[in-house]
C-alpha cells in the first residue's frame, strides 16, 4: 500500500497546500514524493511530538500537512499533540500510520498498532480511514486532501484475491452476498475473507461487508436488512476489542433497537503465547485467520 500511497500523493503534489512531514521514515519508498514536493517534504527527524505540533501550525496557515511514521509512533507517542494542537482546533492534519495492527510482524510489539483507531476515535472530529486494497488508497488520498478535519490513515498490506472485483470506493461496500451470518470486516483481512467465502455456495457463506471509514455514520439499509435476516453479526478487525469496530457497531445497533440475537467478535488479542512472529503468526494466535473464522461462524 505504501507505494500506491506515495504515487497517489505525488499526483497531488501540484496542490501548493500539500506539505509532507515524515518522522525519518520512508527509505526506498517515499523518494518520489520527496522529489516531487522538494521544500514541502520535511524530514522532521525522530521527534514525533514536535512533528505533530509543527503540522498543526502549518494547518493553521491553510496548508495541508500529512504526518507519516510507523503507526504507533504517529498516534501513540504524540497523542497529546494530536489531542490539543490538532483536534482541539479542528485542523486538517492527516496522520498516516504505516503497519496497522500486527503489520510490522516479528519486529515486535513496540511496532504494532492494535489500539490506534480506538484511541483516536475518542478525539473530537477526527475521521479514520482504513483501506483494504490498494485501490482504496488511491481513492482515499484525494478525499483526504479535501477533508476539512483531522484524519488518520491506517496503512497495511493489501490482499486482493485474484478474480475479485472490488466495488467502487465507498465507506461501506458489500463484497459478496451470502445467506449466512452478516460479516463486517475492517481493513486488509477483507481479502482473505473474500477468498474463503467466494469458494462457498451463497446459501452457506456469510454476507460479507467491508467498512473503510470510522465513525460509521448512518448504517446502510441493506446492511440492516442483512442483520435483521441473519440475526448473527460477526465483526472482524485487527484491533483490540476495547474501542474497536465490534463495540462501535454493537452500541449503534443496540441504540437503534436492532441488536441481533448473536454477536461474534474476532479481534487482536495481543500476544497470546508471548512469542513473536509474522503478521500472519499473530493473526492466527488471535483467531484472525479467515478460513478459521468462516468455518467457525458458518458451522455453528
Amino acid at each position: 500500500m505504501r507505494d500506491v500511497f506515495c504515487r497517489s500523493l505525488v499526483s497531488q503534489a501540484v496542490d501548493p497546500r500539500l506539505v509532507f512531514l515524515t518522522g525519518d521514515l520512508g527509505f526506498k519508498a517515499l523518494e518520489p514524493l520527496r522529489d516531487a514536493l522538494r521544500e514541502r517534504f520535511i524530514n522532521a527527524g525522530v521527534a514525533e511530538q514536535n512533528m505533530v505540533s509543527v503540522a498543526a501550525g502549518l494547518a493553521k496557515l491553510g496548508l495541508r500537512p500529512w504526518v507519516y511514521s510507523i503507526a504507533p509512533f504517529v498516534y501513540a507517542r504524540p497523542f497529546e499533540q494530536i489531542r490539543n494542537d490538532v483536534c482541539l482546533h479542528k485542523l486538517p492534519v492527516v496522520l498516516v500510520g504505516n503497519g496497522g495492527g500486527y503489520g510490522y510482524g516479528v519486529m515486535g510489539n513496540t511496532h504494532h498498532a492494535l489500539e490506534d483507531y480506538g484511541c483516536l476515535l475518542t478525539l473530537p472530529d477526527l475521521r479514520v480511514f482504513v483501506p483494504a486494497f490498494d485501490e482504496d488508497v488511491s481513492a482515499m488520498v484525494p478525499l483526504l486532501m479535501q477533508l476539512d478535519k483531522p484524519a488518520y490513515l491506517r496503512l497495511g498490506l493489501a490482499d486482493r484475491p485474484a478474480g475479485c472485483t472490488i466495488p467502487a470506493y465507498s465507506c461501506w461496500r458489500k463484497l459478496i452476498a451470502g445467506d449466512g451470518p452478516t460479516l463486517v470486516v475492517l481493513g486488509p483481512l477483507a481479502g482473505g475473507l473474500f477468498r474463503v467465502a467466494s469458494a462457498m455456495s451463497q446459501a452457506h457463506r456469510p454476507d460479507l461487508w467491508l467498512l473503510s471509514e470510522l465513525p460509521t455514520q448512518a448504517l446502510p439499509e441493506a446492511l440492516l436488512d442483512s442483520i435483521r435476516r441473519s440475526q448473527h453479526l460477526v465483526v472482524v478487525e485487527e484491533h483490540t476489542a476495547a474501542g474497536g469496530l465490534g463495540q462501535i457497531l454493537s452500541y449503534q445497533l443496540a441504540a437503534m433497537g436492532l441488536a441481533p440475537r448473536r454477536f461474534s467478535h474476532y479481534y487482536a488479542r495481543g500476544y497470546v503465547s508471548g512469542l513473536y512472529g509474522s503478521q500472519r503468526f499473530h493473526r492466527a494466535e488471535s483467531g484472525l485467520e479467515p478460513a478459521a473464522i468462516v468455518a467457525s461462524i458458518c458451522k455453528i
Binding site: I42, S53, V54, A56, G57, L58, K60, L63, E80
Partner: peptide
C-alpha cells in the same frame, strides 16, 4: 489567540509550524 495552550511543551512546536508555514507560503 492562535492556539489553546496549557499543557507545557507545545507552544514552541506550534510556533515552528507557523514560522515554517510562513516561509513555505512566502508570507
Amino acid at each position: 489567540i492562535v492556539f489553546a495552550t496549557g499543557s507545557l511543551g507545545h507552544g514552541l512546536g506550534l510556533a515552528c509550524g507557523l514560522a515554517l508555514g510562513k516561509k513555505l507560503k512566502g508570507e
